[in-house]
Design a protein around this nucleic acid. Structure first.
Length: 436
DNA sequence: TCTGGGGTCCTAGGACCC
DNA sequence: TCTGGGGTCCTAGGACCC
């Protein structure tokens, strides 16, 4: 039985966006580059390893990156290429096993327990993957192999850049103990600082700490999960399809006065994006959440749960507008820098049957319509886009466009598929006591 | 001269029901 | 005369991940 081998792989492309840019433009190879952002502002989405050597990181404001690395080259993202090449890598992975769990555009778990008789030991499979991605696609990819997802993920992080780390069963403790707690999935800067305040900086120290202490520091659930990970008790399996629990969209605006026209324009646009994705999968949701960020980075959320699932652009817009207006009034009408909305408590029934005659929040508004005519509007939009393309019609007036900081291609890239397929797991056809 | 956009999960308090 | 306990749902905020 190959069940005790290091049969879970985690494959993670190195500095993905930046590596693609260096692949596409040889003049950028070997140089510190940032994808996204500007020397004066914006946000760096990804940094090449040459840039990381200066301390430049993804998520960092552009002006700070430029200060850290004066010779940094800023490049605009080639988002369509990221999608294409990311998909190509996943195709290589799928040649090894059908049990591939894509976590993001550039990262996936594989369960190769059933593939060893065809392709050899996990370590050999990992080498093959790395060689093929390098030769056929031209990108560096790191791979970790271990008994569990958590350990495989840590191994791939340790392997970076462009490496392979196999955690041989039986050597887990000596591998984990000296590593920093920040490598544990779910330990971010805040928890790391709290643990450090009690002298806990390595995974080994964490395992030696009483659970009551850990839970006091980071909370009950997080503490429990964290200790399970530190003790190498990860039982998660590789899942090939997973349903989303929410669908959302947001947009940074720069500093803007919260005029009703602006709110209406932005929220219509966001509702259109969300509604389109809900419709595409026959989903609707009962809870609508709005986020408003004010100048100074303080942000608030307001939510409302309806008795019926909704999905139409108009209904989402109206509810979101009420929530946002309320939150802004409560705050004393300061300038706003971001608006976002999300729909949750999703219902998998076909959205067409829902939202039958939901009373409009404001029956006196001229734009109010019955459920049927709300759906008809969305259907017409879909038809036009089908024929003439996504940009042929939309809710994005010039009023809002001047705040746009990120190209639409990036938004599309960030959207996760709302997978409706059955959830498949590695090992479903095997005895369930395969793992403790 | 200040920070994107897509998500997940947890916590704590309150409302409400039995 | 003021008193129980459990369960569920909702809301708002926060930490975290890619």
């Amino acid at each position: 039985m190959p069940v005790s081998g290091a049969t879970i792989l985690h494959a993670d492309l190195d500095a993905f966006y930046a590596s693609v840019e260096q692949l596409l433009d040889p003049a950028l190879r070997g140089r510190p580059i940032a994808v996204g952002g500007r020397p004066t502002g914006g946000v760096v989405l990804a940094a090449s390893y040459e840039a990381k050597a200066f301390g430049v990181q993804g998520g960092m404001p552009g002006w700070r990156a430029a200060r850290l690395c004066p010779e940094l080259t800023f490049v605009r993202g080639s988002f369509r290429e990221y999608q294409r090449l990311g998909d190509a890598v996943m195709t290589v992975l799928a040649d090894v096993t059908p049990l591939v769990e894509r976590v993001s555009i550039d990262e996936a778990f594989l369960d190769v327990a059933g593939s060893t008789h065809l392709f050899g030991a996990p370590e050999h499979i990992a080498r093959t993957i790395r060689a093929r991605v390098r030769e056929e696609i031209g990108l560096p990819i790191s791979v970790g192999a271990a008994r569990t997802k958590h350990l495989a993920k840590i191994a791939s992080q340790v392997a970076k850049p462009d490496g392979l780390v196999v955690v041989t069963p039986g050597t887990e403790r000596e591998f984990l103990d000296p590593l920093p707690v920040g490598l544990i999935w779910g330990v971010g800067p805040v928890h790391q600082a709290r643990l450090a305040s009690h002298g806990i900086t390595t995974i080994g120290q964490l395992t030696a700490t009483p659970s009551s202490t850990v839970e006091r520091l980071v909370g009950h659930a997080v503490g429990h999960k964290l200790l399970a990970m530190a003790h190498d008790e990860d039982t998660r399996r590789v899942v090939t399809a997973r349903r989303s629990r929410s669908v959302g969209a947001q947009s940074a605006l720069g500093r803007r006065s919260p005029e009703p026209e602006l709110l209406r324009a932005v929220l219509s646009h966001l509702a259109d994006r969300v509604s389109r994705r809900l419709r595409a999968t026959g989903t609707a949701g009962r809870t609508i959440t709005v986020r408003v960020r004010f100048a100074g980075m303080r942000s608030v959320t307001r939510a409302r749960t309806l008795s019926q699932p909704v999905a139409t652009t108009l209904t989402l817009t109206e509810v979101a507008e009420q929530l946002a207006t309320g939150a802004i009034e409560e705050a004393g009408r300061p300038e706003i820098t971001l608006l976002g909305m999300s729909v949750s408590k999703l219902d998998q029934q076909h959205a067409l049957q829902l939202e039958l005659e939901l009373p409009p929040p404001d029956p006196w508004r001229p734009g109010s319509r019955t459920g049927a005519s709300r759906r008809a509007v969305d259907g017409q939009m879909d038809a036009i886009r089908e024929r003439f393309g996504t940009d042929a019609v939309g809710y994005l007036p010039a009023l809002m466009r001047r705040g746009q900081t990120v190209p639409d291609e990036f938004r599309e890239l960030a959207e996760r598929e709302l997978d409706t397929g059955p959830t498949t797991r590695a090992g479903d056809d095997q005895p369930s006591e395969r793992r403790a």
